[in-house]
Design a binder for these strands. Sequence first.
DNA 1: AAAGTAATCGACCACATTGGTCAATTAAAG
DNA 2: CTTTAATTGACCAATGTGGTCGATTACTTT
Lengths: 200, 200
Amino acid sequence: METEKQERIINAALKEFAQKGYEKASTNEIVKEARISKGLLFHYFKTKKDLFLFLYDFCIEILLNEFFRKIDVMEKDILIRLRQMTLLKFDLIRKHPEMFDFLMVAYGEDSDDIKKELDERNKGHIATGFKMLFAEFDASKFREGMDIPKAIEVISWTLEGFSKKQQEKIKLVPLNKIDYESILAEMDLYLELLKKCFYR
Amino acid sequence: METEKQERIINAALKEFAQKGYEKASTNEIVKEARISKGLLFHYFKTKKDLFLFLYDFCIEILLNEFFRKIDVMEKDILIRLRQMTLLKFDLIRKHPEMFDFLMVAYGEDSDDIKKELDERNKGHIATGFKMLFAEFDASKFREGMDIPKAIEVISWTLEGFSKKQQEKIKLVPLNKIDYESILAEMDLYLELLKKCFYR
DNA sequence: AAAGTAATCGACCACATTGGTCAATTAAAG
DNA sequence: CTTTAATTGACCAATGTGGTCGATTACTTT
């Protein structure tokens, strides 16, 4: 099958699911957007559920792989590591916005039809990866008497809050002229502030 | 009309809208849950839209009023003020969880049918209230050379992140035995940490 | 060229659900 | 006893659903 048609189907489906969630998403809309017939869609994916779960695995595979491949586990400075993770996240959103949106919606999905399958898959991903990200950092950089786990949480929440704020701003601007440099610079101001507070 | 029946209708509608959003919410489900006839619902609220907007105004009135009535605008210590606001939010969620959930969903609603009306209303609320909350605090408490607006954002994001974390925990526990004291105590640890960093 | 096979189509289906109506019944008030 | 208000639920046209299937097209293989 031509890869271009494949892409059309995948993109159409991602978009539809991301926009409306599993149940409200319409296979009719998907085939319309992908410019294929109803029959073809159900020829390749036997059911709506199959389609959804295929997309899920597909996106996880790509996004998570890219994330873990690029991350530098040798970096022992937790502040830099968190900064790096945030940057990676930004990149993924920029490069694969549809996949990212889809996964976000899938994560919050609670339709009985797919909940079980989704939970199973998540156990693997979440448990496997995200513990590793905070392991073996250099605790000696923190000030004495500092509650380090709490400090790390504060940093994470700050980065998260900042990201969300930027994400909302970006939605209102034409994509071609977004000044990533200045966003990055601003983020570093927050990190500098926290560094002065938390580090020796 | 009996207040008890009123409450049944309101609660049923809040629950349904909060659960499924405006469009997916079913008037049939609402009347079933409220144990009234279809006709009666549309006798009081001419359309689904009317019902939704009534609920919105109803909840805003109650929750926002309660919030602004209880908040102490004389408190000049921004850390204490933010702490207070978080506590108030906790209280509101505990006392009116359905209303809170409903407003959260309503806030993210983007159905064409109601978007216009919702935006109009929001302009008023958001603009009016939330600027005031950060006005006239005592900036002299901060360390010299500190970027105060950024510091305040960090505090806000921390409180937000902490709240969300607790909210998720709470969902998994039977409501009767939640230890609010210890949650509060833990929150104060974060605030203490930030105070040491940001204040003189 | 013929035969076979895989890709593709779109009309069609049975079914569920929707927001909303309305003539009729019951309950309350004057 | 009459008037008025509250309340019912069967009913409606419309829309949309996920999925099927026999027919058609396009491509290979013989």
